[in-house]
Design a protein around this nucleic acid. Structure first.
Lengths: 114, 114
DNA sequence: CTGAATCCATCGGGATACTG
DNA sequence: CAGTATCCCGATGGATTCAG
């Protein structure tokens, strides 16, 4: 795999897209099961309504998340991963596993520097 | 793999750390071979001295990058990946491969939305 | 319940100039 | 060569309020 060539390419875009505060968290969470709006709002703990909506809309525009409205009373909206979004779960999990394996290494480096 | 539990954990930290504009680019670039300062500055095309230095320092504090100073005249500084940094290349490549495979999917979703 | 709208603080990040 | 020091701007993101 030509890493040097990949660097300038879409890899950076993907990281910038998912590198914001909540995107990757939402993808992982929606990877477990579909969620409703307030369901997500309660699950995430700390996200504002504004950022939840904005992040969901961005992921929807990227084709990673599907938004399904059920015309009930009161209205109910379900968010789920698209096939593209689900295909992202595998490489995302690889990085998640790395993070878990090495979190104390990073913490150690930080305290050593501090 | 317990995805739901991982979500709240260090995964977010990793993404935020590498999600800035240049970090992941530097890791991939340093994964190919060690580089000197101006070497990186020329290779990256668009990065300012300020951000190059700041990003390198941050990666160094995270224990991902090693900075080696050779006391020559004029001074020469080499940046390379630590073992921890190299261990990150594998999951990073997985995500890079995903980005390359699906870049047209994302582009298609974007134009469909726009 | 599912948002939209507005206001405002913080921060990332670029341009430029200067230094050992 | 390898940085540091300032200045400055736009984007990110939180709090709050309003609405269908």
């Amino acid at each position: 795999m030509p890493l040097a060539e990949l660097a300038a390419c879409p890899v950076g875009d993907v990281f910038r897209r998912l590198g914001d505060k909540w995107s990757m968290l939402l993808v992982i969470l929606l990877g477990t099961r579909p969620h409703r709006y307030n369901d997500l709002h309660r699950s995430i703990e700390g996200i504002s309504q504004r950022m939840l909506t904005r992040t969901l809309r961005a992921l929807e525009a990227d084709g990673l998340v599907r938004r399904t409205v059920f015309p009930t009373v009161p209205p109910s909206v379900e968010y789920s991963l698209t096939p593209l979004g689900r295909s992202l779960l595998a490489p995302l999990s690889a990085l998640a596993d790395w993070a878990v394996e090495h979190e104390q290494d990073i913490a150690a480096a930080r305290t050593a520097t501090a």
